[in-house]
Write a protein that binds this DNA or RNA. Structure first.
Lengths: 157, 157
DNA sequence: ACCTTTTTGATAGTGATATTCATATCTTAC
DNA sequence: GTAAGATATGAATATCACTATCAAAAAGGT
């Protein structure tokens, strides 16, 4: 898979158009708007949340929720967007123009901190090999209480 | 949270009764049967799958799917069972009387291999600390293709 | 601009899980 | 052991996130 790290929006868009052409798919306002919204808001969106934002910022498009789901799947399949499944809080998407990273999540306030650790990645690779697996992906989420919420708790007591 | 590792069934049951009493909940045949079924079948169940097994083994209970969901939630909230969310293949539950472990999952056939790696655990702890978090939990799932599915793919081509 | 193909939004459908409610079952107090 | 008061149950229904369907609209090669 291509590496989209630190790509500018123009480069990303060019990449997207290439993918569309290669698959005989069409470049539409809706698809472009979803991509640019994700690019300009580098945070974690649920499908619903992204739908509401696009609807609000671009009412003339009259975008449908189905298109958001379809486009997110398309983008994810082609590696332009990545997703994480947070149990109760649903599935969240983010633009994949950042280096690979995992997530540290505050159970109290939902704050997400991104991190990256090569040593863990190597160990994961090793574990997969030891079990005869070809590693294709992984999910690592650390849950805890962030410093702010720790303070709040102390004050509360 | 209490540590339920390598607990015998009697101990587990005593623990469960204690939890029920503490919350003014009742000890019922259904709840007991679900706990014992999980204990005696140390594998990963979907709710549906567990429902079918209990229904088959204990037809006299005439258990309802709603009770299975309710009981699994209750057990999970109290740490007696743990779950993992596999995107497409649903949520799976297992009894939590085993040492802590993570999961290596085959994306093709859904096979789950359990593993444990102290070095990764230590690194996770360290990452949380560096970010000012108190680590309470983590989720680590490695996705790949198991050796059997690798063979099948080769034969198919 | 035309013609073919793909995309769209609205709507209905799906599957997993949650809720409702009348009845059944448990626990406690006696 | 039994009655009284509580919670739990199963069946049915509702909900939620997501997917499929379909007629109308838009894209893009010519």
């Amino acid at each position: 898979m291509k590496n989209f790290e630190t790509m500018s929006y123009d480069e990303l868009l060019k990449e997207f158009k290439g993918i569309l052409k290669a698959n005989a798919l069409k470049f539409t306002k809706q698809r472009e708007t979803i991509l640019s919204t994700l690019y300009n808001n580098p945070k974690h969106f649920t499908s619903e949340c992204l739908y509401l934002l696009v609807k609000q910022k671009h009412p003339e498009l009259n975008i449908g929720i189905a298109t958001v789901y379809r486009t997110l799947s398309l983008l994810e399949e082609n590696g332009l967007v990545s997703s994480i499944s947070l149990g109760a809080q649903g599935k969240k998407f983010e633009i994949a123009n950042k280096p690979h990273h995992d997530h540290l999540i505050c159970s109290e306030c939902g704050k997400i901190v991104e991190f990256e650790n090569e040593q863990i990645e190597r160990l994961q690779q090793q574990i997969a090999e030891e079990n005869g697996f070809i590693l294709t992906d992984h999910l690592m989420q650390l849950y805890g209480i962030c410093s702010e919420c720790q303070k709040k708790k102390e004050d509360g007591d």
